[in-house]
Design a protein around this nucleic acid. Structure first.
Lengths: 210, 210
DNA sequence: TAGATTGTTAATCGATTAACAATC
DNA sequence: TAGATTGTTAATCGATTAACAATC
């Protein structure tokens, strides 16, 4: 599984940023851009841009550059964004609520389709127009809506259990917002996002450097 | 500025995770842990754990291991978390709202002290008990509350402008949630967090690998 | 002392950058 | 053709891992 040849993790993140710039350029009527244009707009080197693209093919014209719209479409396809993806969020607390309402997901092709929780006080209520469902119904809903992506937005102590249930329900990609390492098997893609740790990168450097 | 010697970026993120495990271990009454324990709990190799710690000093006892509470305290100090940090959020939309209520920040020593927006309909209202203030009052409030950290939670188009205002107000560390590259000077630490891109790491791998 | 685990060095691995031939 | 920019290779840089001496 995951047979795509090995490319640097960071390349994916940069492709995402390139694509956003290309969309903007296209909308502004800029048809052709060079690796240098992309690089300046996204804060990387031109060599990096070309190298990132080279993993996937030849998209430009020597001496000329890249067609903005075409390259945008290529990158979206590479990222798997040639279609929309239904997503399940587990945890209807502050973070789950926030993520379910976040427009940035929708804009990139992600539809928050289901929200799950175990708290009887929350079940049945709605978030961003989506009903909060009992965690027990996860498998059933995942099948019904063809959900392959899950977001874990529960406390650290519950994260592994939720992950197990997501996998059991057939989810193949998980983002874990709980500040704890969780285990998924070989066949499930996992990423951890630690919001507090992001601030800690800053405080590490700011501590006594005044 | 930022004179601390160069360590891998990823080391900081791992230290954060180690510290959470150590806190838990200490609370469970586990006084001594080895690099192998830490490694297993956090999903890295024991060599990685020891190397990460070695950047900052010698915290263990050969043949024995590390004292959980002591190492926890050391790491918190290293990360700059020996004190609490006031934080400003700019943007009172869904994401800003979410982040202002997110308990994970408080638990790691961050206090969301001010929220700013330009929308007159939002100004004056409260989020998580904190009044939404006009962006114009940023400098004044930052001074009053000694705020050095800022979170950008506005649309991409407004992000650079907000960054400029944060810097002008004396903020020294910025997290940018807008999906766009922004420029800060030499003296400001910057990190970008792209929530949608996190899902794109998954879709890249899941695309047609069924 | 024997067993265990750290701290550190050297080897390996992987990602970024510089340089340049290919080619529009 | 001259100028520009890509795609790609080789060189550099940096991070991870393996191995082991130090030492409890």
């Amino acid at each position: 599984m995951f047979k795509k040849f090995k490319i640097p993790d960071a390349t994916i993140g940069r492709l995402s940023l390139y694509s956003r710039y290309l969309k903007e350029a296209d909308e502004k009527g800029i048809n052709t851009v060079s690796s240098q244009h992309i690089a300046r707009a996204t804060g990387v080197t031109p060599a990096q841009v070309r190298k990132d693209l080279a993993y996937f093919g030849e998209f430009g014209t020597r001496g000329v550059g890249y067609n903005s719209r075409e390259l945008y479409n290529y990158i979206m396809k590479i990222l798997g964004l040639g279609r929309r993806w239904p997503v399940a969020i587990v945890g209807a607390g502050n973070l789950g609520k926030a993520l379910s309402q976040y427009k940035g997901f929708y804009e990139r092709g992600f539809d928050i389709t289901c929200i799950f929780d175990t708290d009887p006080n929350k079940i049945g209520k709605k978030l961003a127009g989506i009903e909060i469902c009992p965690l027990d119904s996860l498998k059933e809903k995942a099948k019904a809506f063809n959900i392959e992506l899950g977001i874990i937005a529960v406390p650290a102590a519950a994260a592994q259990d939720v992950a197990d249930k997501l996998i059991e329900a057939g989810i193949r990609g998980i983002i874990n917002f709980a500040p704890v390492n969780i285990n998924t098997g070989e066949n499930v893609m996992l990423r951890r996002v630690d919001l507090a740790a992001q601030l800690e990168y800053l405080t590490y450097y700011l501590e006594d450097t005044r």
